[in-house]
């Protein structure tokens, strides 16, 4: 399931729903991303997430479908927030449930790695110095590339 929303979400409730009523589930793995108070040496007062309505939902649905084809999963969930957030606020939640832990762990990692380089979101950080757009990290591209390298090895 995909959700792009301004509102906050309840981590426990969302993750519980991935196994609710399904006794075939042997494990659930979840990752949530939060607004960190520091960006390097700079203290952040707020962060505004912009996105591309329409393409965002499409990109997330594709990422979820890709995970579903790669691993035997029961359920997957991607929630991504947009709008103005403050340090400590939740930004994103990805989770996967499966009969066994390996698929749940791998799918969870895959979902966040791919989302970071494919989903059209942009972060604007506010600090005492003013507002500035966050630059993409090479490490994120490399994290996605690791999955592509694995594909070639398989």
């Amino acid at each position: 399931m995909i959700r792009v929303q301004r509102e906050d979400f309840d981590f426990g409730q969302e993750v519980a729903a991935l196994s609710a009523g399904n006794k075939g589930v042997g494990g659930v793995c979840a990752f949530s991303g939060l607004v960190r108070e520091m960006a390097g040496e700079t203290e952040i007062s707020a962060m505004t997430l912009e996105h591309y309505p329409g393409m965002t939902e499409k990109a997330l649905a594709e990422i979820e479908a890709e995970a579903q084809t790669r691993w035997p999963l029961e359920k997957t969930l991607i929630i991504h927030r947009y709008g103005r957030l403050e340090p400590g606020d939740q930004i994103v939640l990805v989770a996967a449930s499966s009969a066994h832990r390996d698929a749940a762990f791998d799918a969870c990692r895959f979902l966040i790695d791919w989302l970071k380089t494919e989903a059209p979101f942009w972060k604007l950080e506010e600090s005492e110095k003013g507002a500035s757009w966050v630059e993409a990290k090479d490490s994120d591209t490399q994290a996605q590339a690791r999955w592509l390298e694995k594909d070639q090895e398989d």
Binding site: M55, V92, L115, T117, P120, F121, K123, E135, A136
Partner: peptide, 10 residues
């Protein structure tokens, strides 16, 4: 057609 910098979500 859309133009943007590399994405920074997640």
């Amino acid at each position: 057609v859309a133009f943007f910098p590399p994405v920074t979500g997640g």
